[in-house]
Design a protein around this nucleic acid. Structure first.
Lengths: 136, 136
DNA sequence: CTGTATCCTTAGGGATACTG
DNA sequence: CAGTATCCCTAAGGATACAG
């Protein structure tokens, strides 16, 4: 499957991710799934950045269309829907960690744990496999 | 220096980069500086994605304000201006490479060299120091 | 709980002309 | 060469009400 097969400004790989993630909201949903243990619509709504309901619905749909997120009925509660990252979505992890590292280094106000930077620098690979194991 | 000290939706590191790069154009300028050897206003204008002149001026200004890009007079031609990445800008390289790798894996139309993925996977660190050396 | 629908406002962006 | 200045238009986004 090719993402955004319809309209692409160029065939550049950087531009490719911009077509999907080049807005202020999409990546926050990925973050919530990847690091915050969130999986439901209402949980996404409650993030600090206060996404509005119509934007959230739109971005979730696009993420599904692009094969980054999948939606399933909860096993324990049939009226509840569960969002999760697909394998393709999980593979965004190295990007997300590099972003976190860059921010942690350059933004004094960032809330990344102080230990993160040194841990990431010294054992990047172990950290990635570790997190991936805990992502179901 | 703290980027975006004025208005921040949250103190999350992911959100932090979104405040600067969460649009369709900013990262393309970084790409042009980092990988395409571009350094002048007119060179940026000529990219495949066809940025318009007012948007380019706006994004260059913001990148300067955020300490990611610096502007200098050319040594050989005093009426020519040269843009370059600051150290902070160069430190975006790991993010850019991870983005390229993800795209190369998931977009069949991407124009990243076929060799890139295997080279990046096997010798990430060497690749990064190599590129950094050639970035002046 | 998970969205739609609607309304309204603003920001982003294209095109083009012009300038020191 | 490196931008400003305009004009205009659309997409993005906030608020809120409503619905299966």
């Amino acid at each position: 499957m090719t993402i955004n097969s319809k309209h692409c400004r160029s065939n550049c790989p950087i531009n490719f991710v911009l077509e999907t993630f080049g807005d202020k909201w999409t990546l926050l949903i990925v973050r919530d799934l990847m690091f915050k243990g969130k999986s439901s619509y209402t949980e996404f709504l409650q993030s600090d950045e206060r996404i509005s309901t119509n934007i959230l619905a739109d971005r979730l749909k696009k993420l599904e269309d692009n094969g980054i997120v999948k939606k399933d009925v909860a096993l324990d509660n049939r009226s509840k829907l569960i969002y999760a990252l697909t394998d393709r979505g999980k593979e965004l992890l190295p990007i997300m960690l590099e972003i976190t590292a860059w921010s942690a280094k350059h933004d004094t106000a960032t809330n990344a744990p102080a230990s993160f930077l040194s841990e990431f620098t010294s054992s990047k690979h172990e950290m990635i496999t570790n997190i991936l194991e805990n992502l179901r």
